[in-house]
Design a protein around this nucleic acid. Structure first.
Lengths: 346, 346
DNA sequence: TTGTAGGCGTTATCAA
DNA sequence: TTGATAACGCCTACAA
């Protein structure tokens, strides 16, 4: 039973620090709570002793009484997808700076929300939850959450989502996809495209259905033919095969608007390396997202950009606000999109 | 005070379930603990009531007494990197199946281990920690962990790591890079490469220094000239610029062995799209990792594969074993590498 | 198989 | 500014 106590005797507790520093247990607690009142010199002494003993307050015990876990749950169908991994990275960084840790859960690939998973997650009591899985009603999600208020990402036509409205409280991030889509279509039209194909994303994805709807609408507004719908699922391989089908079985197109950048890559490679067509000479290609790979020289993709930093900042704002004022009215943050012109249209 | 209690009255507790099901509080606890003895029909009734009340045991409270958080910490410098995001994805899936949740932390990009971050993480009491950040001594890391035993990924020459050995317990995953590197060099040599450049990764990365060392060793064993060392940091952009430097300022090479696939992509694009050289005609390129993008037609990269599934399975085995028998001796799992031949050598 | 009692490490409450 | 005391929700004894 030495002063320093042997390392493997287990983790230092507030009691131990208190004894070592000749103060009460409560004082130790206060030393780690910036807005608690404690004589500065006393706090310093306690923190010094704590450092020596390698003490950190136990979040589990703390959360038991404060009802704050400092955990933010993220439910993701596919961590590997470039867009989502970027978003996870940025969100984790931003939340970490605010004292929250990221709790990562993997949902099934079909975008469905496994009730088992939700139940499981509930056990960890996340202060907030961000679901990258879209096809679940706010009511259902919030039924699994206690204090947490869900955040939804919605697109363009807020009314389409209004049908799902209910008494349940939830915050929203509205992405104005139309801005960027209009610019893209105008560019394609300007370069002479007449027959535009939409290479879709996962059917269950709200982002996808809204992109499709919005592209059709913009084409109509500009007096162009409706888009040729090509099935996809956001992956390279499916995009590749669907593009081959479009030109070998179907009747082709002079422009492809892909639901995401990775899909655009698959289309470009199919066109250039298997169909012997030139991009943008024979077929123009536009993507969606503007992931870092979009500027890689092999693709140099013209794409509709959703600004990641803006998006993450907006999400963090929503989360922090809701944590500070749990009963506040629901809030909508808005994000715009814009076309980034590179080399696949021209 | 209705039967069902109003939703926002807060989360259901074991007491509430016990009252509702006419059993004791302990019975509820046992119902959620498969190896506790409880009359089956009683368990069923309790679980049914629990489901109705949307009750889940509170992990924080549970961990306080069991000393098991069911949290696995992952410290990652860059979630976006394709290799790491793959590994996070697979690990999270595997751990989730075993009842563990992933707690994600972002380390600084320079691979250093922020003591603040470690202290912060400690508060969450992870049962295990996987650090993708390599340059930290086991002693330091385990100083911040209580029950958790660190896992290290080491490369080829186990002796090089032995210098860092200490009384501290830690498990190891040994990656035999030499197998794949030998195959790659043999292929390059067979196709006539004489002057091979090594396009490095982050200097602080152990994987990188060992790859460089091993390539030099293999070249020497085969009577070839030592590699031209080209600085890199695993990113596309740096690889791109370094390749330009190699050919414009330096004296070129007839083959480039990149420390990772993304770097190889940068090299290929610089060669083809800016230097006007053909790959593999003028310059052959080999990568490392075999990420999904390596088979994209624009690159079709010949690369040394580290099998992700094997790697994840080995890590999970190490973690679960350590959790089951915390005092077991340290264990080493071994992984091999092999060349995947595609179109950038020939 | 069941129930009672006690404690895990922390913070909120209240009185000094 | 301080300190004693009582929770927080759960699980592990132990005894019935």
């Amino acid at each position: 039973m030495s002063e320093k106590t042997d390392r493997k005797a287990g983790r230092a507790t507030a009691d131990l620090v208190a004894r070592e520093a000749n103060v009460s247990r409560v004082a130790v607690s206060r030393a780690f709570n910036p807005n608690a009142s404690l004589k500065p010199e006393k706090r310093d002494r306690i923190l010094k002793v704590a450092r020596e003993l390698n003490y950190t307050p136990d979040m589990a015990a703390r959360s038991l009484v404060t009802r704050r876990s400092h955990l933010v749950g993220m439910i993701v169908p596919d961590v590997c997808s470039p867009w989502e991994s970027q978003e996870i990275d940025a969100l984790t960084t931003a939340l970490q700076a605010e004292g929250f840790a990221t709790l990562l859960f993997k949902a099934k690939a079909d975008f469905s929300m496994d009730p088992m998973l939700l139940t499981y997650m509930r056990g960890f009591n996340p202060d907030s939850v961000i679901a990258f899985t879209e096809n679940i009603e706010p009511d259902v999600l919030s039924g699994f959450l206690d204090r947490a208020v869900p955040i939804y990402v919605i697109y363009d036509d807020a009314d389409a989502f209004a049908g799902r409205a209910s008494e349940t409280l939830y915050d929203r991030l509205l992405v104005r996809q139309k801005d960027g889509i209009e610019q893209a279509v105008a560019l394609l039209q300007g370069y002479g495209a007449r027959r535009i194909a939409y290479l879709g994303g996962k059917k269950q994805s709200l982002a996808n259905t809204e992109r499709e709807r919005m592209i059709a609408q913009v084409l109509a507004e500009r007096g162009m033919a409706p888009p040729v719908i090509v099935p996809g699922d956001y992956t390279y391989d499916t995009a590749y095969r669907s593009t081959l089908d479009l030109f070998r079985v179907g009747s082709g197109a002079d422009a492809i608007f892909a639901a995401n950048d990775v899909g655009a890559f698959g289309a470009i490679d199919a066109l250039r390396h298997e169909l012997g067509l030139s991009v943008p000479g024979d077929v123009k290609v536009v993507g969606f997202d503007d992931i870092p790979q979009a500027h890689w020289k092999s693709y140099n993709l013209t794409t509709v950009r959703i600004d990641l930093d803006d998006r993450v900042r907006a999400l963090v704002r929503l989360i922090l606000r809701r944590l500070k004022t749990p009963d506040a009215d629901s809030l909508v943050e808005t994000l715009t999109t814009r076309l980034v012109v590179r080399g696949t249209v021209g």
